[in-house]
């Protein structure tokens, strides 16, 4: 069992947890993910690592409640445990293998959306620790859904906020913010790294293609085992089938077939919705019994 050492509500339906998993913490690198099961009957949930502390033996994850499994996880409190916690999985971000001097000469821009902000953090932090200042755009629908902005500000070169409703920072989508930075403010970027909802990554990719900036996307495909066994996470990259869990999760965004990836991600949506309603209904009735 893996104890929840810390739990923080970051925004409505978004929670941060530090989970005790010393073996995972000791081997984790930026860009990798874990798979956890919160309860004995639970699904295996893949979540990108948002930070790790080797000394404390903890791995941080950020979860947004979407279905029954994530809801059950979010209902856990500090001191509770999750059933299983396996990782780190997937390949680390490519930049950790790059020559650090060359990396210092590059301008990197991270574009994060929603809970995707969480996995961007360890990457930017790693870069900061290695003397590389990366810029970051964080996008959210509205101010209240922004997460980890203070933490990010502490490690980012420049931090830009974009909200769809203009309640904070740039008024509009991250793609609009990106265009403004490049076309109006004259910023030059060698690489863009984007993590967030599939639809956002698709449009970031289209925009950077137009702007001629090489781009990496971290995909959050459906998975079961996360070790290459099931192939649920297959994605077309440059016309070839890849497994997100072992070949990724980071891919050349300009080569990814996002439309297929989005369609595949929705395969169990109806079923999940039914289960969610049943679970909420069940909880409601338990509540009434009290």
């Amino acid at each position: 069992m893996y104890e929840i050492l810390r739990k923080v509500k970051l925004a409505e339906n978004i929670y941060l947890m530090d989970i005790h998993a010393p073996r995972v913490a000791a081997s984790a690198h930026p860009g990798q993910f874990i798979i956890l099961r919160s309860t004995p009957e639970g699904e295996r949930i893949p979540l990108t690592i948002s930070d790790y502390d080797v000394e404390r033996g903890s791995v941080q994850i950020v979860v947004q409640t979407l279905g029954v499994s994530t809801l059950k996880l979010a209902e856990k409190e500090e001191g509770d445990s999750v059933e299983d916690f396996a990782g780190p999985l997937g390949r680390p971000s490519d930049f950790i293998y790059e020559n650090i001097e060359e990396l210092r000469g590059k301008k990197l821009l991270f574009i994060a959306g929603g809970v995707g902000t969480a996995p961007v953090y360890p990457q930017v932090k790693w870069l900061k620790e290695h003397g590389v200042d990366a810029d970051v755009i964080i996008g959210a629908k509205t101010k209240d859904l922004l997460i980890l902005t203070d933490e990010m500000r502490a490690v980012a070169g420049n931090l830009y906020i974009a909200t769809d409703d203009g309640s904070e920072g740039f008024h509009g989508m991250v793609t609009g913010c990106l265009k403004k930075l490049v076309e109006e403010d004259g910023k030059k970027y060698d690489t863009v790294i984007t993590i967030g909802p599939m639809i956002m990554m698709k449009f970031v990719s289209l925009t950077t293609k137009e702007l001629g900036i090489p781009t990496i996307a971290s995909l959050n495909s459906l998975m079961v085992d996360g070790t290459g066994m099931c192939g649920a996470c297959r994605v077309s990259v440059g016309g070839k089938t890849k497994f997100t869990c072992v070949d990724g999760p980071e891919f050349d965004a300009h080569e990814v077939d996002f439309d297929e990836a989005m369609r595949r991600s929705g395969q169990y949506r109806d079923e999940e919705q039914r289960r969610l309603e049943r679970y909420k209904d069940h909880k409601c009735r338990i509540g009434l019994d009290k």
């Binding site: 079961v224 085992d225 070790t227 290459g228 099931c230 192939g231 649920a232 089938t241 395969q267």
Partner: peptide, 25 residues
């Protein structure tokens, strides 16, 4: 543990699974 696919068109459509995935679930 790694499943093989045929490499034919349409293998990434919704509703196509490896036996490994189907049985593991």
């Amino acid at each position: 543990g790694l499943p093989k696919f045929m490499g034919i068109p349409g293998e990434n459509l919704n509703g196509v699974f490896s036996a490994n995935e189907f049985l593991t679930r």
